[in-house]
């Protein structure tokens, strides 16, 4: 079943992607075609099959709680688009009004 324009807009909002109208229309068609193809997995009976999230038998990899030198604040901020007083500067996240 093809996606609707509003579904594509919803997905773009979940992913925080601004899209042009042309992109929204293109992705509606392309994502619908890919999801149609992916629907092949629905015909497999997996009721007794556990999911595989990782192929490794690892769980909770722990290490000793030792403090070791970390990257300098200067290095951490070197790529920041906007930094002030040793911090990343971000816009207001709560509306003051």
């Amino acid at each position: 079943m093809p996606l609707t324009i509003s579904e594509v807009e919803h997905i773009a909002e979940l992913a925080k992607l601004s899209l042009t109208d042309a992109e929204t229309a293109l992705y509606r068609d392309q994502l619908s075609a890919i999801l149609d193809y992916a629907a092949a997995i629905q015909r497999v009976d997996t009721s007794a099959i556990p999911p595989t999230a990782t192929v490794l038998p690892l769980r909770n990899v722990l290490r000793a709680d030792h403090v070791t030198p970390a990257m300098s604040q200067e290095d951490v901020l070197a790529n920041a688009p906007d930094a002030v007083e040793g911090c990343f500067r971000v816009k207001t996240i709560l509306d003051a009004g």
């Binding site: 992705y27 629905q42 997996t46 099959i49 999911p51």
Partner: peptide, 29 residues
């Protein structure tokens, strides 16, 4: 963008079991 949206859709409320979880189960097979 295409893959981020595909992934966001497969993980989103209402589709997680049908797409992401199902894909992980078939991955086991």
């Amino acid at each position: 963008k295409r893959r981020i949206m595909l992934g966001a859709y497969a993980l989103s409320a209402g589709y997680y079991d049908a797409y992401y979880l199902k894909a992980q189960q078939v991955r086991t097979l």
